[in-house]
Amino acid sequence: MDRSIDVDSVDLLGRVRAGDDAAWAELTGQYTNLLWSLARGMRLSEQDAADAVQTTWLRLVERIDTIRHPDRVGGWLATTMRRECLAAIARRERVQPADGWDDLPAPADPLEDGLIREERDAALWRALRALRPRCQALLRVLMADPAPSYADVALALDMPVGSIGPTRQRCLAALRQLMRLGPEPV
């Protein structure tokens, strides 16, 4: 693992604890994309993803002075976000049957391709949707920008660090396979 990242995160959290707004902006700039990617990979709607990301940051503010391992703030965020996503899914499951499925607007598909200009890219994005959910979630998290550390990915998806590399390889191979098969039959 890259030790310089850990040192940076200890320093960054120290500055955040001292009340440094710029340090907070840097921290949110570094991780918000990962948190969003995790929520979307777990197929939360835009609204639920937005609430889960906001709650995760509010929880960090709430706990900022008592976090035990400032060197692992990324892992703390990934774990907290995963929990928020599971809670959002549970909330939907609790509420929806009571409301009746018919009354609800279908949540926007996180793999909606309407915004993509190039057909080639849209086809790639649609192929993702045909992968099994585990692959979709892993690849969506690995797409986060900046690229997340495997330690953070492991906590985000609750999988062993050692299985990320091999699973990534298998999921990308499956994606290539789907692309080779061409446009999905309708």
């Binding site: 918000t32 969003w36 937005a50 906001q54 909606e112 391709d113 890219d121």
Partner: peptide
Amino acid sequence: LRQVAAEADAVPENVLAAAR
């Protein structure tokens, strides 16, 4: 894929603002 994600499913500006 990362580039396509930035186009198709970018983090909304209000989410970034709420984080800050």
